[in-house]
Every structure is written in C-alpha cells, then in structure tokens.
Amino acid sequence: MKPAHFEYFRAATIGEAVDKLGGDPEARLLAGGQSLIPAMNFRVARPSQLIDINGLEELKPLVARLPENILEVGALVRHQQIATSPLVQRYLPFMATVALSIGHWAIRSRGSVGGSLCHADPAAEWPAFMVAAGAEMVVAGPQKYRRIPADTFCSGFMETALGPGEMLVKIEIPLAQGGWGFWEVARRPGDFALAGAVCRRHHSRTTVTWFGADLSGPGTVTVESEGGAGHGTHFWEDAASRVLAVDDDYMLQILGYCADQACRQAQSDEGRDYDNR
C-alpha cells in the first residue's frame, strides 16, 4: 500500500495552482490529503501530478465579515480549526458541532473544509451543512473567479460542479438566524455516517438536509410548519422517500430518524440568542 509515482509541485500562488491544474487533466490538488492519500496508498487514485496548495495563505482565512453577515471560510481551513475557533463559537457555533462529528481528532486536524467539499463524498457532513446554510463557493478558474451556490456544488456521487482547471478558494456562509440541529448514524463514532441530517428552523420554516445513505449528494426538504418538531420519524421517512433516490427501507428509516432528532435539536436551539443578532 504505497502510492505510485507522481510529479510534485508546490504552488506559491492560486494562479500558479490553477495554471498547473488546467495544464494536466490527471493532476490533482493536494490539500489535507485525508481522502486523497489513502486512495493513493491503495493505488485507486493515481494522479500524474500533485499540486500542493498547503502553502497558500489565501486559502486559510477564517473571518466574520459582519457588515455582510458572512462567515468566510478558506478552503484550507481544517475541521479542527472550525471545531475550536472562538470566532465560529461566537458567530456560528453549530458549525463547530458539525466539525466535531467529522472523523477523529487526527483526521480533523489535517482534513480541510474545502478538501471535503471537493471530494464530495455523499457521506460527508460539510456538503449537507453548506446546503442547509445557503453557503456559496468561491472558485478560481483559469480565466476568472466565479461563485457556485452550495446546493449545486455537489453534483453527483463524488462529483462537483468544478470545471477543468477550477479550484475552490473559499466558502461564504451566511450568519443565519434560527435554530440548528444535526444528527447522524454511524457504525462507530467517527466513521463515515450511514446517514445523517442537518435541520434548520427559522420562524415557521423547517429545512432538513440529508446526507449519506448512498445519495448522490445532499438532499433537502423544506417544510413550512407552525407546529413544533413533532412531525416524527415517519413523517420524515415519507418525505425522504419522496425526495431522495433511496429505496432501501433501512436507510429510509434512519434518514427519518436522523431528521426527527435533528429537528428536535433545532427546535430547542431556536430560542438561543447568538451574538450576531
């Protein structure tokens, strides 16, 4: 289990990285490497070239742009940084909760938010969170930057909307009001989730975003509801079976369960008062 040969290039600027990436369709960006390197160890991934972007400071901001009500997360911000950042704790504490559910400590301290989004594993937490949060991806391409809304970013099973030679630079997350909830079911704590759900409640609007369950990407359901969280597991299971391409009864059941648990959390979370209000 050793990687095959590849060329190694350490990018000094985003422009340089994008140039290299555009010039070689078999090249891959190297961020935290927590998904790419195991795939290379198995020789399942065999990039011709690795473009190491770990030195790019432009990819590392973690700032709250308060006038715009935006949390800006650089693509290279590590999961553990999100989990422990006082800034995140202050403006979007729910994001820290999600971060802590990713893998294990040693994985979180290397794995990056952008890397996870671009890897687009359907069982990953960030794509679903970003959809639920209404985030936007800022992407650098060969010619220009462009913005991609989170709900179209993960376009299929381990596929993204990134075009040839494009790289994710940062994510802009609205500092949303309302209550948040998160639940996932895994065989062991820290494993990839079998299924999970992110719930957001604001006024009478409840949004559930699912992940895992062999979905092609995060699936969302919006429910307009005055009633409390009391829709129950079966309601969400039915909703999941209508919206998602899942016909596995077990998966549907845990999707329903996760949604229900997340909604209960979101309801009790809704009353909390955050600094950004």
């Binding site: 490497g33 390197i37 553990q80 400590w105 040693a106 994985i107």
Partner: peptide, 13 residues
Amino acid sequence: GAPARSCLMLAVM
C-alpha cells in the same frame, strides 16, 4: 503540536 496521521501525509508535506 496537533495529532495527525503520518500515513496520510507525504514526507514533503
């Protein structure tokens, strides 16, 4: 100072 998997890092990193 932070825990990391050395099998998931290239030496160059």
